[in-house]
Design a protein around this nucleic acid. Structure first.
Lengths: 354, 354
DNA sequence: GGATTTCTGGCAAGCGTTTTCCCCGGCGGA
DNA sequence: TCCGCCGGGGAAAACGCTTGCCAGAAATCC
């Protein structure tokens, strides 16, 4: 038994498909109540489900929102995805998911697929890259997006605009990474005298770069020298690796007499921070005694981590919502309420008394 | 500028739409190479993107896979989602996401929406409920699914079949929750003499119930009495609450002379376990000294948690893949490799020497 | 060399809706 | 009483693509 069609419903109700369509799917014109009832009854008895593809074709709008993330299993993205999902639901849209590992080429493919599906809008999350090797792909991504926009699509972007994209229809939700990193640095500088080291993502990853820049600026403002920057992977493994390296240095240079932390670390995101902590611990170091460490994002799942991680709380779910609403043309919302975060000092950067 | 259509491409290339369709979208018949080149060139120059909705309508298949989860921000689900996504991608499908908070009514709505979109298959993840208040909704969900299946849809389910669903086309990926919980209990029973307490989800949540049952069986096999079961929310908050209660009891009854843990806790999932640990700690108790605790799932993000959590490792990503492949009719795969987990003993249940 | 296949394009009929007209009956105003 | 309106229902034309079928041409076989 194939799914029943509108035509069948109409026939059963003894009306034309036009009328059936009008009563079953919100139309400006509402047929007479008696007829309407008959149609609804017919639909019910046949178990009629409108074919959204056909509707999409006819209305040329699909009710779909495309979501592009690096990795849906990463808590950063999945939290944002939750926001996207909830905003989409409020607007009776469904979300189409694409994961890309952050590769611009994959992102381009995803945008293409969304365009093919005539998604009403696309939300892109995840740090942009300006690395030279990505330049070409970035350009193609930008072209794909521009094409999508010029065909009437809307795009919501978290963080940085896609490099090179220029058409109308973009809505970016800015995240004050730099400012917040500055604040974090100042807060840490007030308590710590140890050497600062930044555990960062690959050079050219915009989010990472912003946070580095902001942090350095904060140190500067506090009259401290620039921090050393270690570039590594933007994930736990990267943090872990950097942690190992730092642990080695600390152990070889630590002054046993001092009980001040030998280093104050800033990992540009929480997951990296956790990786670094794991490495430091494995090497027998203790946080925050031997080294203080801060992250960024304030991932929910990691809040029970001990020592509690100093970090910058970002309203990830709201960010997802905002990007979605923005992509839907709901731009009033963001003017009302720009994204902001708050520096959250916790145990991992406390200076141990004595 | 509206998106260009196949007809325009055909016109520009000087061929019929039929021919254009054949060269641009994999068809059994491939037109002559010279013509093909002309069409491709035309398509390229127009920036043609096939309209997937129209294709779907014509082919009556959408290339969509519907994924139903309780909460995409929950690491359990997001890890499975990653597997689903990757399997989908390998089969050139896109995934449509729906989150339902586990409410059967919402799940039904999601299935309906997927059916409307003519999703090729649906993957349902998340514990089924047999609670009386859900009975009616469950039945409707089952009806909706049956309808979807009888219209040719395929369904992949993780864990338990939907209560009451009977049509053809279901593929369930069984997760040996009960067996693994039994194993876990035996392993713990070998080391612990303290009172066992199970921190469980609401009564009637199948996954929770299975894990309880398995655990009790394991205790029994080890010659120990049944554990007390505390029913609470299936999430961190639930675990936390139970943790508070247990902490109270422990503190009021603890024998200061003993340095054996006063209780051995089993939380039916990792997130609950983490919540419980947080509560216990807040109450000044230490793990595993005052209480041992184990979880279930082995969530990746929580692996760096200290004390490392004893748990049962589940190949979540594979489970997602399997359910997806199964839903696509790739059933050979699962016969070859049933899902299995492994009891992973870690620090949180170690008995402290002396 | 003629007849029979084998190919290759094109025509046109869907796929299931929406939406623009159009028509017809009833109504109020003059 | 006549006319213009209005409102509700239907016919039919999209929407953009696939595919079964057909016809002509080329290739193959006696």
């Amino acid at each position: 038994m194939a799914a029943s069609t509108l035509a069948e419903v109409a026939r059963l109700a003894g009306v034309s498909p036009a009328t059936a369509s009008r009563v079953l799917n919100g139309s400006a014109r509402t047929p007479g109540p008696e007829i309407a009832e008959r149609v609804k009854e017919a639909a019910r008895s046949l178990g009629y489900i409108p074919n959204a593809q056909a509707q999409g074709l006819a209305r040329s709008s699909s009710g779909l929102i495309g979501l592009v993330v690096h990795d849906i299993a990463d808590p950063y993205f999945s939290t944002i995805a939750r926001g996207v999902q909830s905003a989409a639901r409020e607007h009776q849209k469904m979300v189409l998911l694409a994961t890309t590992s952050g590769t611009p080429a994959d992102e381009q493919a995803a945008v293409g697929a969304f365009a093919a599906r005539r998604a009403d809008s696309i939300v892109i999350v995840g740090s942009r890259s300006t690395r030279p090797q990505d330049a070409k792909d970035n350009q193609e991504l930008a072209a794909e997006l521009d094409r999508y926009c010029s065909n009437g699509g809307k795009v919501g972007i978290v963080g940085h605009p896609v490099v090179g994209a220029s058409a109308d229809g973009y809505h970016v939700v800015p995240v004050p990474n730099e400012e917040l990193a500055t604040e974090l640095a100042r807060a840490l500088a007030a308590e710590h005298t140890a050497k600062f080291v930044i555990i960062a993502g690959p050079d050219g990853l915009l989010t990472s770069d912003d946070r580095i820049r902001g942090f350095q600026r904060g140190l500067l403002a506090a009259g401290l020298p620039e921090a050393e920057v270690i570039h590594t992977g933007f994930d736990r493994a990267g943090g872990y690796q950097a942690g190992l390296e730092i642990a080695g240095r600390i152990k070889s240079s630590q002054d046993p007499a001092s009980n001040q932390p030998a280093a104050c670390l800033f990992a540009v995101n929480d997951v990296m921070a956790i990786g670094a902590v794991a490495a430091l611990r494995e090497q027998g170091l203790s946080i925050p005694r031997d080294a203080a460490i801060a992250g960024f994002d304030d991932i929910e799942t990691l809040r029970d981590f001990r020592p509690a991680l100093t970090t910058v709380s970002l309203p990830l779910e709201d960010i997802g919502r905002l990007a979605t609403l923005g992509s839907l043309g709901w731009s009033e919302t963001d003017n009302a309420m720009p994204v902001t975060g708050v520096v959250t000092l916790r145990r991992s950067t406390e200076t141990v008394p004595t």
